[in-house]
Amino acid sequence: MDDLIAEFLTETNEALAELDTALVQLERAPDGETLARIFRLVHTVKGTCGFFGLSRLEGWRTRPRTCSASTAMASGR
């Protein structure tokens, strides 16, 4: 189990670093591909959190959905 948690921490740190880069990219030049990448990253992290029973971390998934709805409304979709 320790190996799984270590791998989870490594992969989550990598995903968060990629998420940080993608958020900056989205801010500079909004596009659907970058937004989709952000949601894939968030979905992967929250799914893994759910697998490990980390419900407090898994719960952050509702914030990106709200952000997505706001982004879609602002862009007229």
Results as ranks from 00 to 15, higher is better:
6 A>V: 13
13 N>R: 14
50 G>F: 00
44 T>S: 13
42 V>F: 04
23 L>I: 01
37 R>S: 01
49 C>T: 05
38 I>T: 04
14 E>A: 09
30 P>C: 15
35 L>D: 01
47 G>W: 04
18 E>D: 12
63 R>Y: 10
59 G>T: 11
7 E>H: 03
43 H>Y: 08
70 S>H: 07
68 S>N: 03
3 D>R: 08
46 K>M: 01
59 G>A: 14
62 T>G: 00
74 A>R: 11
77 R>S: 05
10 T>L: 08
17 A>T: 09
42 V>C: 04
61 R>Y: 02
74 A>I: 12
9 L>S: 02
53 G>Q: 13
40 R>H: 01
72 A>I: 07
12 T>M: 08
66 T>Y: 00
73 M>R: 14
36 A>C: 06
25 Q>P: 00
15 A>G: 11
62 T>D: 13
34 T>N: 05
73 M>W: 05
25 Q>E: 07
63 R>P: 09
67 C>R: 15
25 Q>R: 11
29 A>Y: 14
11 E>H: 12
53 G>P: 10
37 R>H: 12
7 E>T: 04
36 A>R: 14
23 L>D: 00
14 E>Q: 10
16 L>W: 04
36 A>Y: 12
56 R>S: 03
13 N>H: 11
15 A>I: 06
46 K>E: 03
62 T>P: 12
48 T>M: 14
25 Q>A: 08
29 A>K: 15
31 D>G: 14
41 L>P: 02
43 H>E: 04
30 P>R: 07
20 D>C: 10
41 L>H: 01
44 T>W: 04
9 L>E: 04
44 T>A: 09
58 E>D: 05
58 E>R: 01
30 P>N: 15
61 R>C: 02
36 A>S: 11
27 E>S: 13
31 D>F: 01
10 T>A: 09
71 T>P: 09
13 N>M: 11
22 A>S: 13
61 R>G: 06
54 L>G: 06
13 N>D: 10
4 L>Y: 15
9 L>I: 08
40 R>W: 00
47 G>D: 07
30 P>F: 15
29 A>L: 13
47 G>N: 09
37 R>F: 13
10 T>V: 10
66 T>W: 00
17 A>Y: 03
71 T>Q: 10
72 A>S: 09
4 L>D: 15
2 D>C: 00
18 E>M: 07
15 A>Q: 04
11 E>G: 08
52 F>G: 10
32 G>A: 15
69 A>R: 15
